[in-house]
């Protein structure tokens, strides 16, 4: 719960970049100028999140990053990019090939963290791409197995979290550093869930003072994840539900088909919190406050303890305009505030 007794509201990570940044992000050669634009966009987005009323403003919409795989992969020795591969339709991404031992060339989130710490007084949460997704989205030309590559990525991610935690502790002694491990690939190979658990636990191993959450999106079956929940050394989840839900208001079982899987969560997990996705990031439709409120009330009915419930969009809002993104977040906050 937040200080004022309401449920915690948070964003997930990415938010649409202003045109002045997105138009030059890949082209600007002047590092200093590009950094200034990233900082300007971060300040504006932090302010937008604060105006929307979010309890936790993340890192201001990930203005320092272009893409969740390429951003870390470009800062690692041992990864070579041969070209683009298709994601869907005519949309492509750079999928790296691991051709030699992985080594960190430069930290990839420290500058962003330092800037955000200096520019907001709200709660923050640092999203970082998880080891399983980094492994699954890479071609492996070097390590002898997917497991070996995965554990190398886990060590790398552990080093990044450790480094950020050191920065955090200097400015916020005694206060937990919130880190969200993003793992969209988590449940795509159900037979590798043991490996997945091992890699997450390795990524946070030996780091004190963390509050760790796991963000997974667009899984075909979250029960695969909840089945291993007990073994995951994390504090909670931030998951998507709204995109699969009905748009009709109502707090009954039949009104909220997407949220019934929360029963699988509470059946298997009695401690971790759940960040419940209540707005769909793939549509411009701005869910009305009463619909979001009904989704929250229904979720709370299943989870029970309100201290285990947080409220967020399904995923990062980078796919929507900044105006639509703001309206969605604002309605989400209003919905939380409307609950007695």
């Amino acid at each position: 719960m937040s200080d004022n007794g309401n449920l915690i509201t948070q964003e997930i990570g990415s938010f649409r970049k202003p045109d002045y940044l997105s138009n030059v992000f890949k082209r600007e050669k002047d590092e200093k100028k590009l950094t200034e634009l990233k900082e300007k966009a971060t300040v504006e987005t932090l302010s937008l999140f604060e105006r929307a009323g979010l309890t936790n403003v993340g890192v201001g919409g990930e203005m320092y990053r272009w893409e969740m795989y390429e951003h870390p992969a470009q800062r690692l020795d041992g990864i070579k990019f041969h070209g683009l591969v298709r994601s869907f339709d005519n949309r492509y991404y750079r999928k790296g090939s691991v051709i030699s031992d992985l080594n960190v060339r430069e930290h990839w989130h420290n500058d962003e963290l330092e800037f955000v710490i200096a520019n907001t007084k709200r709660e923050i949460k640092m999203p970082i791409t998880g080891p399983y997704t980094l492994m699954d989205w890479s071609f492996n030309e070097h390590y002898s197995s997917r497991h070996d590559l995965l554990m190398e990525f886990a060590k790398v991610v552990n080093g990044e979290i450790r480094s950020m935690n050191d920065i955090w502790k200097k400015s916020h002694p005694g206060k937990k550093f919130q880190v969200q491990i993003d793992e969209p690939a988590a449940t795509t190979h159900p037979d590798e869930m043991d490996m997945f658990v091992e890699s997450i636990n390795e990524a946070v191993r030996g780091i004190d003072g963390l509050e760790t959450s796991l963000h997974v999106c667009y899984s075909t079956d979250y029960r695969i994840l909840f089945d291993v929940s007990e073994d995951l050394k994390i504090d909670g989840y931030n998951l998507e539900f709204a995109n699969r839900d009905s748009l009709n208001a109502g707090k009954g079982e039949e009104d909220r088909p997407a949220y019934s899987t929360l029963r699988d969560f509470v059946d298997r997990e009695s401690h971790k919190f759940m960040g419940v996705g209540v707005t769909d990031v793939h549509t411009d439709y701005i869910e009305p406050v009463n619909l979001i409120r009904d989704r929250i009330i229904y979720s709370m009915k299943i989870i029970g303890d309100p201290s285990r419930v947080r409220i967020n969009p399904d995923c990062g809002l980078r796919t929507r305009s900044r105006e639509v993104g703001f309206e969605k977040l604002k309605n989400m906050v209003d919905a939380v505030r409307s609950i007695p």
């Binding site: 591969v85 298709r86 994601s87 869907f88 339709d89 989205w137 795509t188 075909t220």
Partner: peptide, 13 residues
Amino acid sequence: ELRRYMETNTFYR
């Protein structure tokens, strides 16, 4: 909707 093709990170409609 977009759906995942087998265990890849490529999606089909």
